[in-house]
Amino acid sequence: MVQTISHGSGNKINGTDPALKPRLRRRSVFEYLAWVVCSLIGAGILFSVSTNPNFKWDVVARYFTYETIINGLVLTIFLTVASMFLGTLLGLGLAIMRSSRIKPVAVTAGVYITLFRGTPVLVQLIFWFNISALYPDLTIGIPFTNIGMAVDVNSVMGPITAALIGLSLNQAAYMAEIIRGGFSAVGKGQIEAADSLGMSGAMKMRKVIIPQAMPSIIPATGNQFIGMFKETSLVSVLGVAELLQSAQLIYARTYETIPLLIVASLWYLVMTLLLSYPQSLLEKKYSRATSRLPRKAKKVVLTEQEGVAR
């Protein structure tokens, strides 16, 4: 500090104006201790990982962009996107059913959600894969009549179909709860206002409830998406050659188990990190107070600092 602006009484020490002195944060002994301990642990792990030859980093590098692995990754991405899409659609339907005033409709959705959230998704996947044991010939038609068509379940229910059905149906139950939560966040007054204008149920849903529920539904859906990406690894038990199964196929042949698991894990990690960035943007956007305003309104309320985020 070279300035010596004197403010009022001149009680200066060493020539620095007290009004300009920085305020320092207090550091406890625990803080210093934490630095030392955590650094030691980190260094130890890093040393072990880099020096233990069994990690075989050269093998990891070789297989990282191997064709089988990339094909597996592509299938994983497909399963994630497809089952999220189907699950969200079905979940929306379930959420609407769940909030229906007609008892049997609401109960049906409730039972579905309970069943699919109450049992492990791994069990569900194996169940769908083996559904042909339960219904070898599925007849889709009206009960107790001859109208309908017969399907040979065994030929239809391949591993990928079973995986897609299992993941989608399970995801639908979770999405239904997320969407219903969004619905219930819409104020009662909004529904009353729509009612008093004479809006029909479907109109209320489309024009009033869903647009206002979106800010709470979208970030949660992003989270589910990231979760689903990792959850797809479960379908490896059905023999679907997604990312994990592709790695397993290779190490079954070469016995380089750990390096290939690292390859798969690195891909999961990379994809999760890539998805986390847009996810954090979504969360930031929808957690802001002004987020209830649609895009057009931003033009008016925009201040310069806020503009950077878009």
Partner: peptide
């Protein structure tokens, strides 16, 4: 519901908390 809605369109209601739709101008 349809007939009830039709009757309601002939009655305007103004609420204490305004209840404007925030997603519309």
């Amino acid at each position: 519901p349809k007939k009830l809605a039709a009757q309601r369109t002939r009655i305007g209601m103004v609420f204490q908390q305004f209840n404007l739709f925030p997603n519309m101008t």
